[in-house]
């Protein structure tokens, strides 16, 4: 599904990723763990195509296509979803308007028909229920005045509705209390599917108690330093990132 090979990325002239390689197969959940400043968010942004992240070397293939040659909206249409660490506020744009616009944009790119208001409402209601969210969320301006937990749940709602093939979750656990964390994790687990790959980026092990990964990778100093099974997360929790040249 996703093949990253020897990826070098600079931001504002400083090299952040220095030869990162990573493969994620369909149906798998991989965790990328690492200390602050190791390049975790850079990895998520470069996969989503954020402007300002210069790829100086390396390749990224997604479903066999050159991901780096695609515009951000093309990647979205092709099934790449990024759950943002800091979801952005859109004043005056209701959740319903945003979700429907996004869903129909993606459907259009896939050659599917627009959902009308009733079909959309039906689709979104099911997802709201499973995330213990109310329809009030749809009326409010997107992310404006939302608590940290509300913002993250809203990201999960979008993910559930857009049904991506590759979901990248950037520090989805940050700023969540344990109840919110569990709700978000349940939402993610519900989306685990044979055709869907997930990349869960996190600093802490605690999210991985709820979303159990197939593989765990340690990202430090711009490269994957070590890879292993789910037990690697527990080991990192106990010993920290010190051996990878970073304080935890």
């Amino acid at each position: 599904m996703l093949e990253i090979h020897d990826l070098h990325v600079s931001v504002g002239g400083a090299e952040i990723l220095k030869g990162l390689s990573l493969n994620v197969a369909a149906g798998e959940v991989h965790a990328v763990m690492g200390p602050n400043g190791s390049g975790k968010s850079t990895l998520s942004y470069v996969l989503a195509g954020r402007p300002g992240y210069d790829v100086t070397a390396g390749t990224v293939r997604y479903k066999g296509r050159d991901l780096l040659a695609m515009a951000p909206e093309e990647r979205a249409a092709a099934g790449v979803f990024l759950a943002f660490q800091y979801p952005v506020e859109l004043p005056g744009v209701s959740g319903a308007t945003f979700l429907r616009t996004a869903l129909n944009a993606v459907r259009k790119a896939r050659g599917e028909k627009d959902l009308d208001a009733m079909q959309f409402l039906k689709a979104v209601r099911e997802r709201l229920r499973s995330l213990s969210m109310t329809e009030e969320t749809l009326k409010r301006a997107l992310n404006v005045g939302f608590s940290g937990g509300e913002k993250k749940r809203n990201e999960m709602l979008q993910m559930a509705l857009l049904e991506p093939d590759l979901a990248v979750l950037d520090e989805t656990d940050s700023g969540l209390d344990i109840d919110a964390l569990k709700l978000v994790a349940d939402g993610v687990n519900a989306l685990r599917a044979p055709g869907r790959a997930m990349l869960v980026i996190t600093h802490y092990q605690r999210l991985l108690s709820h979303i159990v990964p197939d593989r765990v990778h340690v990202l430090a100093r711009g490269r994957i330093q070590r890879s292993g099974g789910k037990e690697l997360a527990l080991e990192l929790e106990a010993r920290g990132y010190a051996e990878f040249g970073h304080a935890a």
Partner: peptide, 14 residues
């Protein structure tokens, strides 16, 4: 904001 534009584009809007 560049961040607003990118957020929307990541969700599939041109």
């Amino acid at each position: 904001g560049e961040d607003q534009l990118f957020y929307c584009r990541q969700r599939g809007l041109d």
